[in-house]
């Protein structure tokens, strides 16, 4: 277990997630304990099957633990109702995926605005905020393009804009550079670092790439569903 002195924004104790697949059980993560302070840029490292994505999905409120305790930004996710989790995903965390997961029938501006509209916010306000984000991300000229008309880097930046539209405290990125070339990957990692440094967001990146290593304020290595104290050997 890794402890920090400040009050953690993400706190887990004995966190376990076991999946039942047919007749067998697969342990996603096993007895994990973490404390992440606000404003950290955390890199979760490990091979495929190490439990990075499982841990990230639990923190994102996309899944529920089998056992243990998990609090994120003051929200006890182990006891949260479905409606609590919906609110949580809207307001507290923003997700960035490896495959971008943009809506193919919505343009860049619309994809960016989507979480704000789902949260019931005023269309004009959301649009204004989205425009601001796209400008920051260098996508103003592409606002009305569909995802099929974008490059991989542009799609991932759109996904980042989408993740930020509701001003979440925590940004979670699952292999954000996995489908990008090294140049675009570097750009994305630097953007996430900027979110952390300048905008003071807590950023958690699950990756087996070393692009973010130099920018991380905290590294957690996972192997076989458990945190390992040994150097992250990918």
């Amino acid at each position: 277990m890794i402890k920090k002195k400040t009050s953690p924004v993400i706190e887990a104790r004995n966190l376990t997630r076991i999946y039942t697949l047919g007749n067998s059980e697969v342990v996603g993560i096993n007895n994990i304990g973490i404390d992440i302070a606000p404003g950290e840029l955390v890199v979760l490292k490990g091979n495929s099957g190490s439990g990075k994505s499982t841990l990230l999905s639990l923190i994102a409120g996309l899944d529920r633990p089998t056992r243990g305790y998990l609090t994120v930004a003051g929200h006890d996710l182990t006891k949260a109702t479905t409606s609590d989790l919906t609110h949580f995903r809207r307001e507290v965390v923003g997700m960035v995926f490896q495959s971008f997961n943009l809506m193919p029938t919505l343009n860049v501006l619309e994809n960016t605005s989507l979480p704000g509209l789902l949260a019931g916010k005023s269309g004009d306000n959301v649009k204004s905020k989205a425009t601001e984000l796209l400008e920051w991300l260098g996508l103003s000229a592409r606002w009305n393009h569909l995802p099929a008309q974008l490059s991989g880097g542009e799609m991932q930046r759109t996904a980042i804009a989408r993740a930020l539209i509701n001003d979440p405290d925590i940004i979670l990125a699952d292999e954000p550079t996995g489908n990008l070339d090294s140049r675009n990957g570097q750009v994305v990692v630097e953007l996430l670092a900027e979110l952390n440094r300048k905008w003071n967001r807590t950023v958690v990146i699950a990756t087996h790439s070393d692009l973010a290593d130099s920018l991380a304020t905290m590294t957690i290595c996972l192997r076989d569903g458990m945190i390992t104290d040994q150097a992250c050997d990918i």
Binding site: T82, T86, R89, R90, M95, N101, L114, L118, A163
Partner: peptide, 16 residues
């Protein structure tokens, strides 16, 4: 499925 679950991930409720 992936699209719909992404919607869920970015804040859509089951009802929506």
């Amino acid at each position: 499925s992936k699209q719909l679950n992404t919607l869920y991930a970015v804040g859509a409720s089951f009802g929506q």
